[in-house]
Amino acid sequence: MKKPALPRQNGSAQKKSLSSLLAVVLFLVFFILALCANIIAPHDPWERFDPYLPPSVEHWLGTNDLGHDILSELIYGSRVSLLVGLGAAVLATAIGLCVGLFAGYYKGVTDEILMGITDVFLMIPRIPLIILLAAFLKPSFWIIALVIGFLWWTSTARVVRSKSLQVSEMNFVLSSKCLGFSDKHIIFTDIFPNIIQIVIPKFMLTVAAAMITEASLSFLGLGDPSMKSWGMMINFAFTKGGLINALWWWFIPPGLCIMFFVYSVVLLGYSLEEKEQAVLGIS
């Protein structure tokens, strides 16, 4: 499978590696922000200063209606946003992975049933359902992450199924069977490691989808008001008059943060996908 190194990379390949480098850097920056929020943030996000202060040396991004420092809010908000995004994506990927692996390995009736369920889930209008659930359930970001996770696994399940159909026909699966390994053992130790490369990019794209959904819900006022995520910050800016009074430092930065983080995750997902395709010799 090893290819001889090309003497010179062409322009597009260079551009690609540059963009994936950018994605990695952006992702790491956000990750570190979330991890070390208490060290990096200049103030406690709940500490009150004068309200509506424009950006200054003391408050880089000014303050909001309650006098909270927006930069600190933004940094702490990354924790919530990332947690919801990653938590939902972990759940969705786990469900999709199991459904896809079992459907692809057992085939036949199991496959029909599992893929039937997947089709049903695909048909559910997801955002309206979440809005409905969020209205009835107590809005907490764990519940939002759970609901997103339970609704976003379908495409992962389909991709995993098709790949696992292919891998389970390979000889080494047969030979594992001949050595008396159980089906569960074969699925998780023989087939799973052979499809991990397609699960990771899928996971990244799910993170992006979950974050956008969380931000949309929060913006609609269905988020957890006690947890300041980026979507929640925009919601506050909208409802507390930040938008009308053009207090740009209040609503632009969280919007940019959402955009850049989702961008980095998607880019990362794509570059992983491309790498996988290059290894397989597709594209």
Partner: peptide, 24 residues
């Protein structure tokens, strides 16, 4: 059968490279 395969009766396939898991 799983108890018999490998422990009581085992099989050696043709195409050995394909019969081994490439990731281990």
């Amino acid at each position: 059968l799983a108890d018999i395969r490998g422990q009581e009766i085992s099989i050696i396939f043709q195409n050995p490279t394909l019969a081994l898991n490439p990731v281990y």
